[in-house]
């Protein structure tokens, strides 16, 4: 396979290797916190912060780490950044921190992050790892944004807390509950597979 251009390194995270829709990684935060757009964005940004800094650190110390203890080292690095993000949210955005609850500390075990370290940062340069992390985060945020928009609009009739559907609309409570997350995510994944299939057929 020829080496990807920098642009491709970024855009692959948005579509072809989108962590949610194509790799089906990080399902736990995806399903749990997308009941409101603001929570989706906050979770996306927290994960972005952790992913970018872990990727930079891991790719820059990759030669120092013996193969046998690499996972342990990655987890320590990731956990450090997660705890920093958690404390930061609790200090400056207490309301969001309360809404996200245990899901911020749980970023530690988000497979997107460990997966990127293992599959990419441990084998590539710092620059490429940074671009890769940026692309993956963008894909993650994009997915959370789509999912949480659908759920908040149908489940509460609002978008970012603003009423968007008129008073005639009776909110579908199910959409902000767990079953709504599963149904919406399932339909979205099916849609991306249909689109991908169509793209391949056209080639």
């Amino acid at each position: 396979m020829p080496p990807r251009s920098i642009g491709e390194e970024f855009t692959k995270g948005l579509w072809h290797e989108n962590p949610i829709f194509r790799q089906l990684l990080g399902m736990c935060p995806t399903l749990a916190v997308t009941n409101a757009v603001i929570n989706g964005i906050a979770m996306g940004l927290a994960t972005t912060f952790v992913l970018i800094f872990s990727s930079i650190v891991v790719s820059s110390i990759k030669k120092l780490i013996p193969n046998q203890v690499r996972i342990a080292s990655y987890i320590v690095v990731i956990a450090t950044f997660v705890t920093m993000a958690d404390r930061f949210l609790a200090a400056f955005f207490p309301l969001i921190s309360k809404d996200l609850g245990p899901y911020v500390p749980l970023i530690v075990v988000n497979c997107i992050i460990l997966g990127r370290q293992e599959a990419f940062s441990s084998k590539n340069s710092v620059g490429r790892s940074f671009i890769d992390a940026l692309g993956m985060s963008a894909g993650f945020i994009l997915a959370l944004l789509i999912l949480s928009s659908i759920r908040e609009i149908l489940g509460a009739g609002t978008f970012l807390g603003h009423q968007v559907l008129g008073s005639w609309f009776e909110p579908w409570v199910i959409m902000i509950l767990p079953p709504g997350a599963f149904i919406t995510l399932g339909i979205l994944i099916a849609l991306t597979f249909v689109i991908e299939h169509k793209i391949k057929q056209r080639r």
């Binding site: 780490i65 080292s73 320590v76």
Partner: peptide
């Protein structure tokens, strides 16, 4: 292995 893990732990 010990040195790497210790230093990673210490720094974080």
């Amino acid at each position: 292995m010990v040195i790497v893990l210790t230093s990673v732990g210490l720094i974080s």
